[in-house]
Simulated scan of single mutants.
Amino acid sequence: MAYQPAMVPPKKSKRVLFIVLGVVLALCCSGGAVGAFLIYRVAMDATGPVRSTVNTFAGALVERDYPTAYQQLCTRVRDRVSEADFTRQQETQPDLTGHKIVGLNLSNQNGHVSGSATVRYTASEGGTTNRVYPLIKEEGNWRVCE
C-alpha cells in the first residue's frame, strides 16, 4: 500500500479582504470629505452676501464713513432718517477701533427672508460692545434694518 499524503487545503489569503475593506474605507472617507465641503460651500454661498453687507456697514462705522454706512440701511430706515441725521447720531457715539462679526442668523419664513448679525466693536478706550443688527433682503440685496 502506497502512502498518500492528506490533501491540505491551501491557506486562504486575507489580502483580498483587506484590499476590499481599504477601498470601501477610502470611498467612505472621500465621500464624507466631499459632503462636508459641499455643506460648507452652501453655507458660505448663503451667508456670504449677508456677511459682506454687515462688514461694509460695521467697517464704515469704525472708519466714520457715514455715507457708506447709510447706504447699507434698508429703505424703511432711510425714509425715516436722513443721511445728515444719521451722521449726527453716529458722531455722538464713542470712537471705535475695530469690529468682528460674532454671530449670523438667517431665516426664510414663507418666502420672507430675514436675519440678524451680532457685531462686536472694540472701542478706542479698550472696551468691547456687542450690537445686534436686524437684516432684510430688499430688491435682491441684504440691508441693515435697525
Results as ranks from 00 to 15, higher is better:
residue 1 M to N: 13
residue 3 Y to E: 15
residue 6 A to C: 05
residue 8 V to E: 15
residue 11 K to S: 15
residue 13 S to Y: 01
residue 13 S to E: 06
residue 16 V to M: 11
residue 16 V to D: 11
residue 16 V to A: 14
residue 16 V to T: 11
residue 16 V to Q: 10
residue 18 F to P: 02
residue 19 I to R: 00
residue 19 I to W: 02
residue 21 L to Y: 08
residue 22 G to Q: 00
residue 24 V to M: 13
residue 29 C to H: 01
residue 29 C to N: 04
residue 30 S to V: 08
residue 31 G to D: 03
residue 31 G to S: 02
residue 32 G to D: 06
residue 33 A to R: 00
residue 35 G to C: 02
residue 36 A to T: 04
residue 36 A to P: 00
residue 37 F to P: 00
residue 38 L to A: 13
residue 40 Y to R: 11
residue 40 Y to D: 14
residue 41 R to C: 09
residue 45 D to L: 10
residue 45 D to K: 08
residue 45 D to T: 06
residue 45 D to M: 10
residue 48 G to Y: 06
residue 49 P to L: 08
residue 50 V to M: 14
residue 51 R to L: 13
residue 53 T to K: 02
residue 54 V to E: 11
residue 54 V to W: 07
residue 55 N to A: 14
residue 55 N to W: 06
residue 60 A to F: 01
residue 62 V to R: 01
residue 63 E to G: 13
residue 64 R to N: 15
residue 66 Y to E: 09
residue 66 Y to W: 06
residue 68 T to V: 12
residue 69 A to C: 03
residue 69 A to D: 05
residue 70 Y to R: 01
residue 71 Q to E: 15
residue 71 Q to M: 13
residue 73 L to T: 02
residue 76 R to Q: 14
residue 76 R to Y: 11
residue 78 R to G: 10
residue 79 D to P: 00
residue 80 R to I: 07
residue 81 V to S: 04
residue 81 V to H: 01
residue 81 V to R: 00
residue 82 S to E: 10
residue 83 E to C: 07
residue 84 A to H: 08
residue 85 D to P: 00
residue 86 F to N: 06
residue 87 T to M: 02
residue 88 R to A: 15
residue 88 R to M: 13
residue 89 Q to A: 15
residue 90 Q to V: 00
residue 91 E to V: 01
residue 91 E to R: 07
residue 91 E to Y: 04
residue 93 Q to H: 08
residue 93 Q to E: 14
residue 96 L to S: 10
residue 97 T to E: 12
residue 97 T to F: 06
residue 97 T to P: 03
residue 98 G to T: 01
residue 98 G to Y: 02
residue 100 K to D: 14
residue 100 K to F: 09
residue 101 I to C: 10
residue 101 I to F: 10
residue 102 V to H: 07
residue 102 V to C: 09
residue 102 V to Y: 07
residue 104 L to P: 05
residue 105 N to R: 09
residue 106 L to Y: 05
residue 106 L to P: 04
residue 108 N to K: 05
residue 108 N to L: 10
residue 109 Q to F: 14
residue 110 N to G: 15
residue 111 G to A: 06
residue 111 G to W: 05
residue 111 G to I: 01
residue 112 H to A: 15
residue 113 V to E: 14
residue 115 G to A: 06
residue 116 S to N: 14
residue 118 T to R: 04
residue 118 T to W: 01
residue 118 T to L: 03
residue 118 T to D: 11
residue 119 V to M: 03
residue 120 R to W: 07
residue 121 Y to N: 09
residue 121 Y to E: 12
residue 123 A to E: 15
residue 126 G to I: 02
residue 127 G to Q: 10
residue 127 G to R: 05
residue 129 T to H: 08
residue 129 T to C: 03
residue 131 R to C: 12
residue 132 V to F: 03
residue 132 V to L: 04
residue 133 Y to D: 15
residue 134 P to N: 14
residue 135 L to C: 10
residue 135 L to D: 13
residue 136 I to Y: 01
residue 136 I to E: 12
residue 138 E to K: 00
residue 142 W to A: 09
residue 142 W to S: 09
residue 145 C to E: 03
residue 145 C to R: 00
